[in-house]
């Protein structure tokens, strides 16, 4: 069986020749959660956005379910991949219900109300209360839950998450992480989680890929990560915990 997502020698150069990504090799198996860890500017978001063809590599290839993304129709590819970002990106002119039902709607299917309610309950939003509300009437955490429900609506096998809880306060973030962990254990999706938060990566992922300046500097099972002797890993862990303690 092919990997759910595979990067083969992927590189990306900026217009000025700077290397943004450099020789990335990576394969993610079906149903696993992988965290891409790194500082801002390390290239982790760019890597994530190559999976749904929002960014094209300069060289190398990206395969989703064994098929090159450039050979696939971008629109169909994207509809089959859940996408969650830090700023939520809920459409301000749609109710929560319509936001959540958007991808099925794009596919020309009438969004099924029962399904939307079920999704909202799954992410911990009381459906009867929230379905009719507007995004601006929700708190940051609630919006993030709605964003997650939207990403799950078309039942994609792959879920891309870019700092999904980055904008939340620590308490809300912890709640969300707990909810997501339980949800992922049930749903068995292939998840690519971009984060700078080491604790989040350790808590949610089974594998951690550490990036620095567009290169992968460590690729470890989550349980081995903190015992690693790799200089880059130890430095990141130290820097991260110093940052959190401050």
């Amino acid at each position: 069986m092919p990997s759910a997502i595979e990067f083969r020698d992927v590189s990306l150069s900026a217009a000025d020749g700077r290397r943004l990504l450099d020789g990335i090799h990576l394969a993610m198996e079906e149903g696993t959660t992988t965290a891409i860890l790194g500082r801002s500017g390390s290239g982790k978001t760019t890597l994530l956005r190559m999976v749904n063809r929002m960014v094209r590599p300069t060289s190398g290839s990206i395969l989703v379910h064994g098929e090159e993304v450039t050979d696939q129709d971008a629109v169909q590819l994207r509809r089959g991949i859940g996408y969650v970002i830090q700023e939520t990106g809920l459409f301000p002119h749609y109710t929560i219900e319509r936001n959540v039902g958007l991808v099925p709607e794009l596919n020309g299917k009438r969004a099924n109300k029962e399904r939307i309610y079920e999704l909202l309950q799954q992410v911990g939003l009381e459906a009867a209360k929230f379905a009719g509300r507007w995004p601006h009437q929700l708190s940051g955490g609630q919006r993030q839950r709605a964003g997650l429900a939207r990403a799950l609506a078309a039942d994609p096998s792959i879920l891309l998450m870019d700092e999904p809880f980055g904008a939340l306060d620590p308490l809300t973030r912890a709640e969300m992480q707990e909810m997501l962990r339980a949800l992922l254990q049930r749903l068995k999706k292939t998840v690519l989680l971009v984060t700078h938060d080491l604790d989040e990566a350790l808590y949610l992922a089974s594998r951690i890929v550490l990036m620095e300046d567009g290169r992968i500097v460590a690729d470890l099972a989550a349980r081995d990560f903190m015992h690693s002797e790799l200089l880059e890993v130890r430095q990141y862990a130290q820097a991260f915990h110093r940052g959190v303690a401050r």
Binding site: N52, V75, R78, G80, G89, F91, V103, L106, R150
Partner: peptide, 13 residues
């Protein structure tokens, strides 16, 4: 721009 970016990433034509 985030809204338009998400719209494309969700698979809007």
């Amino acid at each position: 721009p985030t809204i338009r970016d998400v719209a494309r990433a969700l698979g809007m034509t």
